[in-house]
Design a binder for these strands. Structure first.
Length: 123
DNA sequence: TGTTTGACCACGG
DNA sequence: GCCGTGGCCAAAC
């Protein structure tokens, strides 16, 4: 946990722009057809919180190189759909990748879940 | 300056 | 499974 504290201290010295890059870097690593969660990304970064990941992804709306549609909440719900334009776009993007979405929820969520912490070394 | 609000989550009952 | 509670932390008000 010492490493975690040092990591957090380091993170505190970063400005928001860098924090976005960490979140975006992980989001970009999510393979097509797979999904991850706000909390998992926050945990793998060992800084911030799930809320901050949502906040960061909100800032990503202006970018076209961040697959924010592959990030859902812990229940597999498309909680961020309202921030896409139009909102239906999030589901459409997922379905284009073969992910089945019913009632704003990813089907087979546990199987499609991609664990960011297992791929951190690739960053 | 203090309070409320989120693309959230873990936990207890 | 559902609910409330508490933690989270930047932004907006």
């Amino acid at each position: 946990m010492v490493a975690l504290q040092k990591y957090k201290a380091f993170a505190k010295s970063m400005d928001n722009e860098h924090y976005f890059e960490w979140v975006f870097a992980i989001a970009r690593k999510i393979p097509p057809g797979r999904v991850s969660t706000y909390g998992a990304i926050a945990d793998s970064l060992a800084l911030g919180s799930a809320r901050m990941v949502g906040w960061a992804l909100n800032q990503s709306a202006s970018r076209d190189d961040v697959p924010a549609h592959r990030v859902v909440n812990r229940k597999g719900e498309l909680s961020g759909r309202a921030h896409f334009s139009p909102p239906e776009r999030m589901q459409e993007l997922l379905e284009k990748e073969g992910v089945i979405v019913v009632d704003n929820r990813v089907q087979d969520f546990e199987k499609l879940f991609w664990h960011p912490a297992e791929h951190l070394e690739d960053l």
